[in-house]
Design a protein around this nucleic acid. Sequence first.
DNA 1: CGGGCTATTGAGACAGCTCAAAGCTAGTGG
DNA 2: CCACTAGCTTTGAGCTGTCTCAATAGCCCG
Lengths: 248, 248
Amino acid sequence: MVLTREALALSAFARAPLFAGLGQADLVDLAARFHPHHFARDEALFHEGHRAHAYYLMAEGRVKIIQTSVDGAEVILHLLGPGELVGALPNLDDGTYPGSAIALDDVSALSISPADFEALLELHPRLAINLLHYAAGKLRSVHSRLRELTTERAERRLARTLSRLAAQIGRGVEAGVLLDAPLTRQALAELSGTSLFTVSRTLKEWERQGVLQVGRERVVIVNTHALATLADDLPLPASHPQRPLPHA
Amino acid sequence: MVLTREALALSAFARAPLFAGLGQADLVDLAARFHPHHFARDEALFHEGHRAHAYYLMAEGRVKIIQTSVDGAEVILHLLGPGELVGALPNLDDGTYPGSAIALDDVSALSISPADFEALLELHPRLAINLLHYAAGKLRSVHSRLRELTTERAERRLARTLSRLAAQIGRGVEAGVLLDAPLTRQALAELSGTSLFTVSRTLKEWERQGVLQVGRERVVIVNTHALATLADDLPLPASHPQRPLPHA
DNA sequence: CGGGCTATTGAGACAGCTCAAAGCTAGTGG
DNA sequence: CCACTAGCTTTGAGCTGTCTCAATAGCCCG
């Protein structure tokens, strides 16, 4: 689908809670500073550590923000979709990208220079406040992941990751909720902080139990409630044997 | 040390980069909305999950922000000191505290109601922008921890935690850099995502190697460079060609 | 000088990782 | 339309870093 610059901007802006509360005149001012771009699947919008030359407002498609460790292991920090801002947030701090952004599918996005972006913030206080709220949400979600990583085991982390994804990118289909992005086992591992092998085994097991339906780069959540139970109530070791012997 | 309300406010405000760029008149407006409070060591400023009734600007002392999992395990999300804002950031999102704030020592802080705080943001655009930059920094640091937790092993995470603490709360003393807060092994474990036993063993080992000097609730970094090496260059399995050959 | 944290140390268990080897699946090009 | 191939997934078999548990020792304050 090809859109004119105007249409693209409008559609992106309309979806973005970031621009809520701004007047029409403000929106026109904003739109003038954004430039349309296109990225193919697997293409990088920018690379970790590079000096920031542009931020992006997503119009179509999804990107993942990843960080790579010295030995090549990757972690997915965020999945971002239409209406979301890519690269801007953590960059306000020191001007280098803290992660790389990779297109998960074909992506249309609107770019803006850091300088223009900062100017917009100064000119439109509403925008700064909206962005602050947005950042607050991100912070909250990253905090949760941080806690999960240190206190919960792989299986439950995966269940939580799937729940989160369902809320974020889930699409209702007849069998249940489809995670509407091409997610390999590897990607799920990088989101939940485990290995692709553990993900594969666990998904298979849940499919056997009727909780999910899995396929190549595809997960459908059949039993949302069961998944929530796995995410929240799953006891640490085995589940059944209650209490050894109270034996009065 | 007891300070008048005015003096307390001024000292806190002066330290806070949050208020950089604000005029004298603005500062007076701000100061009027804050109310002084005091908390003893181990006292909670607020509890996870509760509806936010106040945010705090730290004046003296330190607090830790923690999240607790169902089975009681804790994670320390942040350590916050003078000039920093406690509770406000992630709260802008949904109005409940995402973690609990506990005083590490005696704490003086200035409280402000969420409504007043939001009003300030509307009235003083500079403040929103400053806060945005501050949030960006937090986000960046949490992202790094997230990556470390999933890709690095306990020993290195601990080294990084110590480095980070040195930068944040380190105080030069004759033996090296003292971490200027009462940090138990347990607390270090909760900061680095490991167990207090692993922390104890590892610190002891590093003390043997002359990198640190450890005591009860006390760590002094003797060899900063060695610690940085441990944090960055430590290969996965064993590291040094220390292996004493049984015989040549 | 006792009581209560805090820290150390050893021994054992295990979740989840690593590695290796097929098995699938979806494109692609002849 | 069918082989071919590349990438994704599954499955099995160890291995080990780290946690758990238990017991002891040390330090500080009342």
